[in-house]
Design a protein around this nucleic acid. Structure first.
Lengths: 189, 189
DNA sequence: TACTCTAGAGAACGAACGTTCTCAGCGCAA
DNA sequence: TTGCGCTGAGAACGTTCGTTCTCTAGAGTA
């Protein structure tokens, strides 16, 4: 890999860790510079602005999230199990030491109103997740209304886990998902 | 009412509007000062710090939210209808012009990691809402697992409506709530 | 060796932040 | 009228931010 690409990767990784833990606006370029171990000029040769770093961080987070969901889904075979695997993935994530809520929701709350590109990145990630759930729902043979409901549970679990500090909301979401899926798949009365 | 109390009220109201629309950190004391129409010294005689204003704003929001939920619930009679009224309230709120997500989730995402009192205020509001849902669920004769599920739907609807910019998530949440409530109240096979 | 070019380190810049300080102006007792 | 105390307007302070600039040290070439 290109040395510049590798450095960029290290910078995004460090920025992600800092921004996610403390919020974007609480972390200055100087702190990021010293964390990465390069000069400010070097940092600005890798990215044109702080906003560009934030967007790169969100891109990376989108990728990591997608990979995590799909890896968990790969362990089971039916669409129904893959849908429920989402909440298992969430529980595992919520239980990590550095869990601090959904990075996109956090970034949207912090910058969505003032930095349109951040709001756009959050919107894209949520749409992408909704599309994933919709595809699995379709494969499971469920009616169209199910997918948005399952997505809502996942979103709610993320904010609830973040604010409460407990991972149990993932279990509540999973139990609700089972009920909703079974109801949607049940033969019409 | 005391003139000072009224001025404080006006200040909190203006701060709420500005902070909610653009985020706390994007609004400086000077802008708030000119919006309220008082001097900085006066503002600092009403509140000891910006943090105190933020907490006052969150307190007020908690009150407005609670009142709104209870007003909507007052229009119907059964606990089941009162539970569903939550989602009607949400839909009406999501449809307002200045809707910008849940102020507590936004504040938590922006300041939760660096200002403990803000994280605490968010936690309190969510716990208060969960207790409200739990009480109604109990009155409806539902098992304990129902309430957290219904709360998750409401939380998910708020973030989804904020990021997507559409109020429809309230309808998805309501439909899911109907399914969950009916399943929870159905006689055990 | 002498010259040129590049890139890195971090000082410096202007703006904006939250907070404090100064000082002018007014009400009021004597 | 004079002196006193208090309030309020907003200038000023120190800090921190994102970004840019300067200056130095070293590699490559003739």
């Amino acid at each position: 890999m290109d040395a510049t690409t590798e450095l960029r990767e290290r910078a995004v990784s460090a920025a992600d860790r800092l921004y996610y833990a403390r919020g974007v606006q609480s972390v200055g370029m100087d702190e990021l510079r010293s964390e990465v171990g390069v000069s400010l000029k070097k940092l600005y040769s890798l990215f044109p602005s702080k906003e560009a770093i934030v967007l790169a961080v969100l891109d990376r987070r989108h990728q990591v999230w997608t990979d995590g969901i799909e890896d968990t889904a790969a362990a089971v075979s039916t669409p129904r199990e893959k849908l429920l695997a989402i909440y298992d993935f969430l529980f595992a994530w919520f239980s990590t030491d550095d869990f601090n809520g959904c990075g996109f929701i956090n970034a949207f709350g912090e910058l969505g109103a003032t930095v349109p590109s951040v709001a756009e990145a959050a919107r894209e990630q949520k749409l992408s997740f909704q599309a994933y759930v919709a595809e699995l729902s379709r494969q499971a043979g469920a009616p169209d209304f199910l997918a948005p409901q399952l997505a809502l549970l996942a979103e709610g679990a993320q904010t609830t886990a973040a604010i409460s500090g407990s991972p149990e909301s993932a279990h509540h979401a999973r139990a609700a998902a089972v009920t909703l899926i079974d109801a949607a798949l049940a033969p019409q009365h």
